[in-house]
């Protein structure tokens, strides 16, 4: 067992990132060797994207407040990744890397333009009220369903329950270019995860997006918070399942399986 090479994941930490420990735990449970690195240290080292490709199978941008509600959630982090580190992430994915951005980590990917410049996210420090929500901004659990086969992270996943932390953060499409953008997203399989129902008013119920390669996933609900069944709000109806894994773990296991497939010697 000790001879088996474990894939390595770089979990970003830094100002405003809150969920790095949960994210690290989720990857560790799935079998990864986890490295938590502070963004400021990576900047100080001049850590280029090529080195990221060499050293890590996965890059994770966890959720949190991501430092800049004032400028838009995930904005400052995206500016630092783009301008100070020079990472594009699409190049990293093309070289076999996988990326996941969760919650405001997803917002960071959006601000980086990974899913196109016609996509954005509303985020207003917890005070925004999505249209149709009657002024309510509720924490809670949602059902999400994968769409299509493009996204490597969501392979084999059915409808799952996941917690949603910032329901004011709606994914929106440029109002003047909505139709063509939607066609593009659907035709290319980029719209990979949708909310069941429309609990927060995201355009087209978007709960997750992936890039063309299917290796970069941005996801609004938090799978890293559901790696144990006891996190589910209804688990006490079946206490005998207290030690069972949560449904979010499958997403991290998919990344692990993808890496193991990639290093398998050809038959």
């Amino acid at each position: 067992m000790s001879d088996v090479k474990r894939p390595r994941v770089l979990v970003l930490r830094g100002p405003g990132i809150l969920s790095e420990n949960e994210t690290a735990q989720a990857f560790a449970t799935a079998g990864f060797e986890v490295h938590l690195r502070n963004l400021a240290d990576l900047v100080a080292e001049g850590y280029r994207e090529e080195r990221l490709s060499e050293e890590y199978a996965v890059l994770a941008i966890p959720g949190g407040a991501s430092t800049a509600d004032e400028l838009g959630s995930g904005k400052l982090l995206a500016l630092k990744i783009q301008h100070l580190l020079g990472w594009t992430l699409t190049g990293y994915a093309a070289r076999g890397g996988m990326v996941i951005g969760i919650g405001s980590g997803f917002h960071t990917l959006i601000r980086l333009g990974v899913f196109g410049r016609e996509i954005s996210v509303t985020s207003n420090g917890g005070t925004a009220s999505p249209a149709g929500a009657g002024g309510r901004s509720l924490q809670g659990w949602v059902k999400v369903a994968p769409i299509g086969m493009t996204c490597t992270w969501l392979r084999g996943l059915g409808v799952v329950d996941l917690p949603l932390r910032h329901p004011e953060a709606r994914i929106v499409i440029h109002p003047n270019r909505k139709t063509e953008t939607l066609v593009k997203l659907q035709r290319r399989g980029l719209h990979c995860l949708k909310y069941e129902g429309n609990p927060i008013g995201s355009d087209e119920n978007i709960a997750g997006l992936c890039d063309l390669s299917g290796r970069i996933l941005g996801i609004m609900p938090h799978p890293e918070s559901f790696i144990r069944w006891t996190a589910h709000p209804e688990w006490t109806t079946a206490p005998q399942r207290a030690n069972a894994p949560g449904q979010g773990l499958a997403i991290f296991e998919n990344a692990y399986q993808e890496f193991m497939r990639a290093i398998q010697p050809p038959a």
């Binding site: 509720l138 659990w141 059902k143 917690p163 609990p199 938090h222 006490t236």
Partner: peptide, 27 residues
């Protein structure tokens, strides 16, 4: 109205939340 505007899920450790819920779907 108060509880669900304040985060009780962050850190992913909460096993008994302030409210018990039947059926996961806000609607």
């Amino acid at each position: 109205w108060l509880i669900r505007q304040i985060d009780h899920e962050v850190q992913g450790t909460s096993a008994l939340k302030p409210l018990h819920v039947a059926s996961v779907s806000p609607e």
